[in-house]
Simulated scan of single mutants.
Amino acid sequence: MELRVLNYFVAVAQEGNMTRAARKLLISQPALSRQIAELEAELGVKLFSRKSRHLALTPAGHYLLEQAQEILDLSAKTKRNLTKASFISGDLTIAAGESLGMQRVMNVVSAIIKEHPSVKIHLLSGDYSYAERKLDNGTVDFAVIIGNVPLANYASLTLPERDTWGILMPANDPLAQKAVIKPVDLQGRSLLNSQQAQKMHLFQNWLGNYYDSVNFIGSYNLNFNGTLMVKNHAALMLTLDKLADTSKDSGITFRKLQPELQQAIRVVWKHGVNLSPVAELFLKLLRESIFE
């Protein structure tokens, strides 16, 4: 598959119409139709199904669209970094979950863009599985990982900060009267759990014998929407400290767990990869911020 043809395919998928896509790409409609037909023949699958005047992606088409966008983004990023390697420029892409440790990372990123204004920063939010996929396919330079997850295939740098788990609740909830939350306090309560913590069975271990008496109503991967459910008194939320606004007027509050449950924060990158100049600079400044 040529990058040019992948670009044609993405344009058709986005427009849903061969004529509009051809106009956008500045080529003739018959030429574009021929390129898409040749791509389908090369892959041995149908990428589009015709619905009235609209071209809809088939399941194979949806898969190729996701992969094609990743490939084209990686190609563009590589070209920018290579053509401007004589000075600190190009793109720095970081995938991260929500964490207190991101402040240190953002301090380093801010210093880079102030000193090197041609650098472009891209921040992608997601949990560990999302960050791992982005690292593996090369579309991010670094990932910020929270928790004890397997990192054998990656190089890593542990940040001094540690994230602390607790319960986010309405400010007028009876548990808000407590200084800390113990497993026994959560009996019969409805909880929203972190997807990553759920996969790691983190709270199953912490709750112990009380696990079956807690009603886990669902999960979240980013904090904000879960916070809205807490404000609606729909559930309590297992989350990390300092991720939600718990000021006096917010209507919600946070209490740490007891026994305390903390998790390490690590910046990771792929083993054996030649980092771009801006990625090398980021790693150098991050190390200096930790060990200075």
Rank of each mutant, 00 (worst) to 15 (best):
S213L: 12
N221M: 10
V230Q: 05
S190D: 15
S219P: 03
L257F: 12
D91C: 08
Y8E: 11
I36N: 01
S289P: 02
I113C: 03
Q204H: 15
M102E: 00
E260W: 05
I113R: 06
F216I: 13
S99W: 04
G138D: 04
K114L: 13
W165G: 03
T164Y: 11
E292A: 15
L47V: 09
L285R: 14
L6N: 01
N225D: 09
N232R: 15
D91T: 14
V12C: 05
A171K: 14
K77V: 15
V45E: 10
L238E: 03
W206D: 09
L151H: 10
N107A: 05
R189K: 15
F282H: 02
E280M: 11
Q29V: 07
F216Y: 11
L124K: 07
P259Q: 05
F9G: 00
N148E: 15
K51D: 14
M1F: 09
D245S: 07
K248D: 09
E292P: 09
P59H: 09
V180K: 09
T227L: 07
A155W: 05
T78S: 15
E15Q: 13
N107F: 07
Q35D: 12
L243S: 04
A152D: 14
N221V: 14
L6Y: 02
H116S: 06
L192R: 02
K199D: 13
A244L: 05
M102C: 00
A85K: 12
L261Q: 06
A143G: 06
L168H: 01
L186Q: 01
E40R: 06
T158K: 06
V214P: 04
K256V: 10
Q263F: 10
Q69P: 01
F142C: 02
L157D: 03
L47H: 05
I265D: 00
N225Q: 11
D173F: 08
A41F: 06
Y128S: 06
Q196G: 12
A31P: 07
E2R: 10
K114R: 15
F224W: 13
K114Y: 10
R50G: 02
F48L: 00
R266A: 09
K51P: 01
R255H: 01
P59Q: 13
D91Y: 15
D212M: 03
A171F: 04
L6W: 01
P170G: 02
E280N: 08
P117C: 00
L159V: 09
R189F: 04
F87W: 11
R287G: 07
G188N: 09
N225G: 04
A85C: 05
I217S: 04
E98I: 12
L135Q: 07
Q187N: 14
L100E: 14
S75G: 03
L92R: 01
A176D: 06
